[in-house]
Design a protein around this nucleic acid. Sequence first.
DNA 1: ATGAAAGCGCTAACAT
DNA 2: ATGTTAGCGCTTTCAT
Lengths: 314, 314
Amino acid sequence: MITLTDVAKRAHVSTMTVSRVLHHPEQVSEEIRLSVQKAISELGYKPSRVGQALSKQRQFVIQFLILEDVKKVDPYYAKLLLYIADFLRNEGYTLEINHDATYHASQVDGTFVSGARKSDLKMLTELPYPIVSYGKVGQEIPYVDIDNAKGTFMITKYLISVGYQNIIYIGLNLKEDFSLERKKGYETAIIENKRKAHIFMINNDEHEAAALVNQLDLKEKTAIVSATDRIAIGVLQRIQECGIADVGVTGFDGVFISQFSLHKLTTVEQPLKEIARTMVEMMLKLINKENVKSTLIKPRIIIGETTRKQKVIR
Amino acid sequence: MITLTDVAKRAHVSTMTVSRVLHHPEQVSEEIRLSVQKAISELGYKPSRVGQALSKQRQFVIQFLILEDVKKVDPYYAKLLLYIADFLRNEGYTLEINHDATYHASQVDGTFVSGARKSDLKMLTELPYPIVSYGKVGQEIPYVDIDNAKGTFMITKYLISVGYQNIIYIGLNLKEDFSLERKKGYETAIIENKRKAHIFMINNDEHEAAALVNQLDLKEKTAIVSATDRIAIGVLQRIQECGIADVGVTGFDGVFISQFSLHKLTTVEQPLKEIARTMVEMMLKLINKENVKSTLIKPRIIIGETTRKQKVIR
DNA sequence: ATGAAAGCGCTAACAT
DNA sequence: ATGTTAGCGCTTTCAT
C-alpha cells in the first residue's frame, strides 16, 4: 500500500506537506505543490480511510439498519439503498448495511433506520450518533416519509376529475400512521368534492381484496382507491375476470409490483431518489450538529391503464 | 470512547494483557483474566474497528458492488444483501454497498459483485482483493449461481410427470449464459422423455409474451415453461383472459413477482439464503488464501396454482 | 511556507 | 505470565 510517507519521500518533503497539499493546498508553495501532486499521481496514492479515521476520530461510515425481518423486506429497498449509497459517496461516506436489530453497537458516524416501530424508540434514542428514519416512528427521531395523505388525496381528486362518480376506498386494517394518513387523504378529497365516502378496511392481501370486490356489486363510473399496490392487484384481477366495464383501480407504492401486470396500474409512486437525497442531506446536517426538520416528500401519481385518462392534475 | 488503555488502567495491567484476554485468553492467568473481564464489562468496552484495522492491516469490510443501473436492479437484491450482511456479521465482517461502477478503489478486504458483464472482466481481475460474483462472468472469477439448466430441467420434468402432453418453452432472446442454460435444461428434459421441443425466444416483456400466446393456438394438456417470471405473468394473464382450460404455466426466479397474483405461479425459486451463505463461505476462503470452486446452487421448484398437482419431483 | 513530534487504538514481536 | 516497544497511516499542534 502506498502511504503518505512514500509520497513524501518521493517528493523530498515531509508527510505534513503532502497532507497539506491534499487538504489545504493554498498553504503550500506552488512549486512544492506541483511536485507533490506529481508524486501522488505517479505512485497512485490513495489516502487510507483507516488512517484518516484514526486521527480524525471519525469513520466516514453511515449504517443503514433494517429492522424488518428479511422475509418481509419490501422489494424497493434495494433501490433506496443504492440511491443512498450514491449520494453518500459523493460526500465521502460509505454505506454499511446492518440488519439484525440487536446489532446497534456498530462504530459508525450515523444510522439510517427503516421498519422501526414504537418499541424500537428507546433503543434508537440511546444510540450515540445521529439517526434518520425512513418512515415516522415518533417525534423524537427525525424522519423522511412520503406524504401519505397527500398521495391518496391527489389520486382521489384525479379520479373525480376524470369523471368517476362513485369512489370507494379499500384501506389497510392497521393502526400505523401511514395507514391512517392514507385513509385521511381519501376522506379529505371526498369531503372537498362533496361526494359520499365508501370505506372498507382489510389486510394487505390480494385474495382478501378480490373477495371484497365480489361483494361490492360494482357499477359503471366507479373507481376504487387502494391503500397498497397489493390490494389493487387483487381488485384488478377480480374485476378483469368479471369483465365489469369502466371501473377504475388505483394503488399506492408502485415501484415494482405495478410493473408486473399487462395493464399498468395507476398508482402513487414512492419518489425513492428524492427520499434518499433528503435522508442523506438530513444526516449530513445532523453530523454537523445542525438542526433538521422531519420531511414529507410530495408523492407523484402515475397514470397507468387502469383508470380513465382525461386530464392530469399536478 | 472507552479504549484498551482505559480498561488496562482500571484493571491495573498493561494494554497487552487486556488484548490477550480478548484474543488469547488461555495465555492469561485466571485471576487477572477475571479482573480484566470485569473491567471490560463495567466500562462497556468495545474494541475499536479502526484501531484493529490499522494494526492488523485489514478492514474487516467486504463490499457488494452492484454494476447494474439503479433502475434495473432486481427486486430481490434487497434480500440477498441482507442475507449476506447477516452471514458476514457472524464472521466479524461488515457489508458495504457500492454501486457506481467507477468506484472500485474502495478499501475493503473483498468484493462481491453482481450484474457484471464480460466487459467488466478486466477491471475485476485487476482488483487487489478477492472477488466472488453472483452469476457467472467468466472462468477467471469465482462465482455462485443458481443451476439454471437444472431449474428448467426439473420443472419440465415435473410438467411431464403430472401429465402435460405438449410442452412449450418461451425463452429469453439473450446470449448470456443463464439464458442459454435455461433453454438447455428444457431441451434435455424433452429429449430424455422423447417429446417434441417447441421453442420460442422473446424479450423479457410481459406484453411480448402475451402477444406470442395469441398466436399459439393452445390446446388442452399443454404447458408453457417460461424463462422468467415476467414472461410467465404475461402468458398467464393472456391465458386467463382467453379462458383456455388446463394449460399449465411456469416461471423462473420467483421471489417477489410470483406473489403478486391471485394465482400463485409455479416457478423455479432462487434460493437466496443458500446463495448468500455460499458467497460468504467462498469469500472467507479466498481471504485465507484457500482455493475455491465456483458453485452452482441447486434450485427448488415451487408448485403453485398455475399447473396441475399430482406428484412432486425432488 | 515547511517540518518535527505527538497521538489516535490496537497488536505483533520481543523482553522480562 | 506479563510488560515494553514499536509501528500501522494520518492529522493536529507547535516549532522553525
